[in-house]
Design a binder for these strands. Structure first.
Lengths: 189, 189
DNA sequence: ATGTTTCTGGACCAATCGGTCTAATCCTGT
DNA sequence: ACAGGATTAGACCGATTGGTCCAGAAACAT
C-alpha cells in the first residue's frame, strides 16, 4: 500500500486494513505499519488522535464498506437470491486467491482482539449487521418475505465466514465456490 | 486456571489455551500468562524450550482434543447424523454461554496470527482436519456413504465456525442452537 | 545418606511496544 | 508576499515484550 498519490490518511487506513487482516490487531506494530504506509508517526496521531485503536476502527470500517460494495455488485444484477449468493461466493473466492490464501476476515481480525475490547466488539457487531442487512435487503427485493429474507441473510453470512475459515485451512478457494450448493432455501434446486 | 494441584506443565497449557482463546496469540504477554498460571519463567522454558510458540502449539492441541471428545460424546449415542449434529450444536451453545459469549475458536485464535505463521498454519490445518475426520467417521458409522459423509462433515464444520462468529457478534448462543436446521442433508426434515 | 536429575524462582537483557511532543515544512487564502 | 492553520518529521519516553541464564530447591534413585 505505497501509492504515494493517495492522501496520507487514506494510505494509513488501507495499509492498516491490509496488515491487520493478515496478522491481526496485536500482530502489527506501529513502526511496521508506518514504514509500510510511508508515513511518520506525527501524521498518524494528527489524523487519528487516539492512535492505533482509532486507526483500527477506521480500517475495519473501510474494509466493511468494500464488502458492502461487493455484496451490492453481486446482488444488483441478480435474478434470484441463489443467483446473487452464487456470484458473491465466486467474487469472494477470487478475493481469497488474491490474498495468498492467507488473510482472515478484515473485520474480525482487526476488532476481535483489541485492547478496548468492548468498543471494538460493538463496532464489529455494527459492521457485520450491516452486511447482513444489505443481503436481507436484496433478498426482499428479489421476492422474499421479510423474515425469510433475514434468515437467508444469516445463513449466507454463516456459510461465508465458516467457508472462508475452511478455505484458509485448506489453502483452496474451491470451498468458497461450492458454498452456494449448501444454501438451504425454501425452493429446492 | 489456578488449580495448584495440577502439574506446572498442564497449568501452563490450560492457562494459555484460555487466554489465547479470548485475546489471541499476540494479545497475551508472557508475564500475564505466567502470573495467571502461577508459574515462573524458568518453568515455562524448561517445559517448552521454544517458549511462547511451543506453548501455543501445545495449548491449541489440548483445546482441539477437548473438541474431539465433545464430538465423540455428541455422536456416540446418536441415532442419526442430524441427531448427533444437533447434540453437538447444543453442547457448543452451552460452552459459548460459559465463555461469556466472548471467546473465539481456541485453535484459530491461537494459531492464525503467530509469528511463525507457516508452522502455525500447518498445525491448524492438521487439527481442523482432525475434527472433520472425526465427524465424517461418525457419519459413515451412521450409514452415510464415504463421500457423502465427508461433505456432511465439511458442512457441519462450516456452520459451526460461521455460527460461532455470528453468535459472538450477537452475544447470543441461540444462533448455535438453530444451526442444525440449516444443515442440508439428502433426507429432508 | 548421598549424588543426580528435574524443576523452580527470578534477576537481567536487548528490542520493541504505543504514545507524546516540538520544530520544521507545506499548503492555502488574502 | 505573508500570515496562519494543517500536516509532517522524527527524537524521545516509560513500559512491556519474549528470551536467557543460573543459583538453588525438590524429587528421585541407590
Amino acid at each position: 500500500m505505497d501509492d504515494q498519490t493517495l492522501p496520507t490518511k487514506d494510505r494509513l487506513i488501507r495499509t492498516a486494513a491490509e496488515l491487520f487482516r493478515t496478522r491481526g490487531y496485536n500482530g502489527v506494530g506501529l513502526s511496521e505499519l508506518l514504514t509500510a504506509a510511508k508515513s511518520p508517526k506525527g501524521s498518524l496521531y494528527h489524523h487519528f488522535p487516539n492512535g492505533k485503536s482509532d486507526l483500527a476502527i477506521a480500517a475495519s470500517t473501510w474494509a466493511s464498506d468494500q464488502m458492502l460494495r461487493t455484496i451490492a455488485a453481486s446482488f444488483g444484477s441478480a435474478t434470484s437470491f441463489q443467483d446473487g449468493a452464487t456470484t458473491l461466493c465466486h467474487k469472494l473466492a477470487k478475493l481469497f486467491d488474491l490474498s495468498n490464501q492467507w488473510d482472515g476476515c478484515p473485520v474480525s481480525a482487526t476488532l476481535f482482539e483489541g485492547p478496548d475490547n468492548q468498543a471494538f466488539l460493538d463496532h464489529a457487531t455494527h459492521l457485520f449487521e450491516g452486511w447482513i442487512s444489505e443481503v436481507a435487503h436484496h433478498a426482499e427485493r428479489l421476492g422474499m418475505a421479510p423474515d425469510e429474507a433475514r434468515e437467508a441473510a444469516d445463513s449466507l453470512y454463516i456459510l461465508v465466514q465458516g467457508g472462508w475459515l475452511l478455505a484458509r485451512t485448506r489453502r483452496s478457494s474451491d470451498v468458497l465456490r461450492f458454498l452456494p450448493k449448501k444454501l438451504r432455501l425454501s425452493e429446492r434446486d
